[in-house]
């Protein structure tokens, strides 16, 4: 009887236990896995964030995947360029807040990819586009996309 009570008690539900959702399936969502971005141009980051209680904030990290270390979370395989040593790879890390009290938020964020820095032009090739979303409680979701950044 005591055991049964334990089991019932431990099966009880309460509190927020749901991760937020990064939806890259909405219309015009960008970028998608295997998409190409271009140096010297801006693009609009467009995805839908949802949560059962309240959204927190998100972070975007773009870094090179010249060594094919990969943490894509997508099922589709993209064709990768041969492995190469980075010389002056492009890198982008930025966190963004989401207004308080939202359960749904569609991003409409313009990100500019410069052509180079003081050390010269950035390397073309395979990159990772990594999105990390957290809700108010601290639950997270990640999406990692394989993209290419090239020069037109």
């Amino acid at each position: 009887m005591l055991v049964l009570m334990f089991f019932i008690y431990s099966c009880e539900e309460e509190g927020d236990k749901e991760n937020p959702v990064i939806d890259i399936g909405i219309e015009n969502a960008f970028p998608q896995n295997c998409d190409t971005l271009y140096f010297g141009e801006a693009f609009t980051f467009k995805v839908l964030f949802t949560d059962n209680v309240e959204l927190g904030s998100y972070n975007i990290d773009i870094h090179n995947n010249f060594d094919h270390h990969s943490h894509s979370t997508e099922v589709t395989e993209c064709s990768l360029d041969p492995v190469k040593e980075p010389e002056n790879p492009f890198r982008f890390i930025q966190d963004f807040s989401i207004a308080d009290g939202l359960r749904e938020y569609e991003t409409n964020l313009s990100i500019n990819i410069p052509d180079g820095n003081s050390e010269g032009l950035f390397d073309e090739g395979d990159y990772h586009f990594f999105v990390n979303l957290v809700d108010k409680e601290g639950w997270t979701s990640q999406v990692g996309l394989s993209i290419k950044i090239l020069r037109r």
């Binding site: 927190g56 904030s57 972070n59 966190d95 990390n132 957290v134 809700d135 601290g138």
Partner: peptide, 8 residues
Amino acid sequence: NPTDRFDR
């Protein structure tokens, strides 16, 4: 404690 923030 996991917060609702990121740090760059």
